[in-house]
Structures are given as C-alpha cells and as structure tokens.
Simulated scan of single mutants.
Amino acid sequence: MKTKLLILSLFLVSISSCYIPKQKPDNFDEFWQSSIKELGKEVNSSIIKDSIIGEKRITLRSIESYENTTIYAWVAEPLNSGKYPVFIRFSGFGRGNKSKNSIPDKWFLNQKNQISIKVDIRGQGLSTKQIKFKGYLTNGLENKDKYIYKGAFLDAVKAVDFAKTIPNRDGNIVVTGGSQGGALAVAASALNSNVTMCIANFPFLTDIFNYDKTKWPMKIWIHETKIKERKLEELHETLSYFDALNFADKIDVPVFLRTQEIDTITPKEGAIKLFKTIRSNNKNLYIAPCSGHGCSSKSVLANKMEQVFINENLIKNQ
C-alpha cells in the first residue's frame, strides 16, 4: 500500500512541475460553435406523464438531445391563463429522480407566477437508462469530443431550446442550479442566446487547473490519466473545454453568483475569477461565510439577495 501511495505521490509531483497549462484553448469558440451545429435547433419532445397539482399542470417530458440521447424535464405551468417567465433548474452531480411516479423538487415546481422546468441531463434521473452514472467523471475523458460533459453542456443548451417552445412563456428564460447545475447554467448562458438571466450557485468545473490534486474531483481525473498512461497535458487539454472560466466572456445577461468562504469543489478564488471574467456588467457575487460545498444554499441573506436580483432583472412587458 505504501509503495502504491509513493508511486502516486511521485506521479503527482512529476506532472505538476512539468509545465503551466494554458487556460483557454485557441479553438475553444470554434469547438463549441461546431458542437452547437451538431446539436441542431430542432426540438423533439413528448409528454410522458400529465397531472394537475394545486394551481399547476405538471408534465414529465422527454427531450431528444445530442447523439440521440433522451433527457427528461418536469414542467410546471400555471393553470391561469397569461404569460409567465420560465425558470430552468439543472441538477447537481449525481442527482436526479429515476421514478416517473415521484415528482422531484416540488418546492421549485410549485413556485407561483412562473413556469418551472426541472431538468435531468444525460446520466441523471431517467436518462440513466441510456447512460449510466457510474464512472461519470471519467466517461470519455481521453477525448474532448467524447467526454461526458460535452453532451451534458449540449443538453443544457437543448433544454433552453425546449423552453422557447412553451406557448405561454413571456420571453424570460432564467437558468439556475447549484454545483454541477451551476456549471450547466453558466454553459447554457454562454452557448444559447435565448437565456435572459443566469443564477449560478457555487458552479462546479470552475478554475479546474487550480483544484487540489489530492481531493475529489481532480484526484479522480489524475488517477484515470495515470492508469491510461496519458500525459497531464492531455488531461488539461480536455478539461479546458469545460472550465466555466472559459465560457464567462460569452455571458452578457444578468448574473447572480454565490459560493462559500471555504470549499474545495468550488474554491472562492475560482468563483471570484469567474465573476470578474463574466462579460456582463450586470452581475452580483455573494460569498457566504461558511465552510463546505453548497453551504451558501442555507444563507438567508444570499437567498434574499438572489430573489431581489431576479425581481429587478426580469424583462417586463413581454
């Protein structure tokens, strides 16, 4: 055991001292423009389940996404006639509801005066029938075109395309989520011009190169790189196409960003870099004085600030 630990330690030292990785690839924009073309704009969706709960009609929808993968969304629409803002919530890492008979995140779906869409991307919830969650972080890691997050980010783009097809939307499409959901919100805002506001909470995959190499998730990526006998340069090259920092200069809609003082998964230093890099001048950052990934979700002040920000930045008279 000590021998294995020594070998891994030597590997980490050797790969971490060889070079300084390039933050953003030269062909980053071209890569994602090409990927969006592969995805296409057509929206194919079907209703799987339909019910009335309280003052909302709630449907479970299947949506066809990148490479013929089906993703799923719970859609809650007010029963009263009128036009409403659309809020899309993306799930965190490994989360999702695998049952058609149990409605997830009712607190979100039951929000009044809005159309709420809870999305499970590939490898989450019902879509695990096609893509298993096991090994998610390293699925296709050897190639940026095959890496799981290429499809995941394109799923987020497709979810926005789907939201645009809802007849009683008022023009607002707000994307939101925490951790992995925050990263998906960032990617969707950068890659889909139909997004009108971004609420990104402690977004995962931010400032990846400065992640602690001895902790999750970087240690998982490095371990996979080692056993596949690949170079750190190749790992960094792949991950650079999915770092939230590299999407930031494409975001020109209002952004509310929160994180926490101490967090190894979304270090505040990375969140600050992201905030500064976001193109939009209409943005707000709050760092909660707490320790632990996602602890800012419990911040009463952060929640109030977020709601005020949303109210102030919804597009009126749509």
Results as ranks from 00 to 15, higher is better:
W74M: 02
W74G: 02
V75T: 10
V75N: 07
V75P: 03
A76K: 05
A76Q: 06
E77A: 06
E77L: 04
E77P: 00
E77R: 09
E77Q: 04
P78I: 13
P78L: 06
P78H: 06
L79H: 11
N80V: 04
N80F: 03
N80I: 04
N80R: 11
S81T: 05
S81R: 06
S81N: 07
G82Y: 15
G82T: 06
G82S: 08
K83S: 13
K83D: 09
K83F: 01
K83A: 03
Y84A: 02
Y84P: 01
Y84S: 04
Y84C: 03
P85H: 12
P85F: 10
V86Q: 09
V86E: 09
F87Y: 04
F87E: 00
F87N: 00
F87V: 00
F87C: 02
I88P: 00
I88M: 11
I88N: 09
I88Q: 10
I88H: 10
R89W: 03
R89N: 08
F90Y: 15
F90C: 11
F90I: 08
F90K: 06
S91H: 12
S91I: 07
S91L: 12
S91R: 11
S91F: 11
G92R: 08
G92S: 12
G92Y: 10
F93A: 14
F93M: 11
F93L: 15
F93V: 05
G94D: 14
G94P: 10
G94Q: 14
G94L: 13
G94A: 13
G94M: 14
R95D: 13
R95V: 02
R95G: 12
R95Q: 14
R95H: 10
R95M: 11
G96N: 09
N97M: 15
N97D: 15
N97W: 14
N97S: 15
K98A: 09
K98G: 02
K98F: 02
K98T: 13
S99G: 09
S99M: 15
S99H: 14
S99Q: 10
K100C: 08
K100Y: 12
K100I: 15
K100P: 05
K100E: 14
N101I: 00
N101V: 00
N101S: 11
N101C: 02
N101W: 05
N101L: 02
N101K: 10
S102Y: 09
S102E: 13
S102T: 14
I103H: 05
I103S: 08
I103Q: 11
I103Y: 07
I103N: 12
P104N: 01
P104A: 00
P104K: 00
P104I: 01
D105N: 11
K106M: 12
K106L: 12
K106N: 04
K106T: 03
W107M: 01
W107E: 08
W107Y: 11
W107K: 13
